[in-house]
């Protein structure tokens, strides 16, 4: 699942740009943005991923009143059967964006998601690797496609060791 509606907000863009360490005034100063080529605040290139904020069921955000798999009293609030007990994890392998235009605060985007390709590969360090694509298309209020995002996730059978 993903968010169905993504309201693009100026404060959200400001916080996102701060988090990625981008001081460009176009992301936080409407007056300065007016003097840029786009003529207004626009979203940074990877901002579209923050549509997760508007997904009511997003699994990587604690849900009110429900157990959370991060630590509290115990190192995890959810029994370890979640990963099959082998320590394997899902990781983000690849992300691509295609921009048909860049959006600005005040717009509300509509999202459509669909699965893409999936494949398997034998990894050097993490055992068998299962890859799957997820495609999210962002449409503006006039129904025009503005951005297409393709994420590739990978599930490993073992913990990926760092070198």
């Amino acid at each position: 699942m993903a968010a169905k509606k993504f309201p693009v907000e100026a404060g959200h863009i400001m916080m996102f740009a701060r988090a990625v360490g981008d001081p460009n005034p176009i992301y936080h100063d409407a007056e300065a943005a007016a003097d840029t080529e786009p003529g207004k605040t626009i979203a940074p290139p990877t901002f579209y991923q923050a549509s997760a904020q508007f997904d009511p069921e997003y699994f990587l955000r604690p849900r009110i009143g429900e157990p959370w798999f991060g630590s509290g009293k115990e190192p995890t609030g959810v029994p370890p059967t979640r990963t099959g007990g082998d320590g394997g994890t899902g990781l983000h392998a690849e992300q691509r964006f295609e921009y048909f235009r860049h959006v600005s605060p005040g717009e509300t985007l509509t999202l459509k998601t669909r699965p893409g390709k999936s494949w398997e590969r034998q990894g050097k360090r993490g055992g068998n690797l299962k890859f799957s694509e997820n495609i999210t298309e962002y449409y503006d209020e006039s129904g025009e496609l503005v951005v297409r995002a393709t994420g590739v996730g990978v599930r490993t059978e073992k913990v990926v060791e760092s070198d």
């Binding site: 392998a93 992300q95 964006f97 295609e98 921009y99």
Partner: peptide, 12 residues
């Protein structure tokens, strides 16, 4: 430049 990107993709 601002607003010029048409595609951006990476592998982690």
């Amino acid at each position: 430049g601002d607003g010029r990107l048409t595609a951006y993709g990476v592998r982690f």
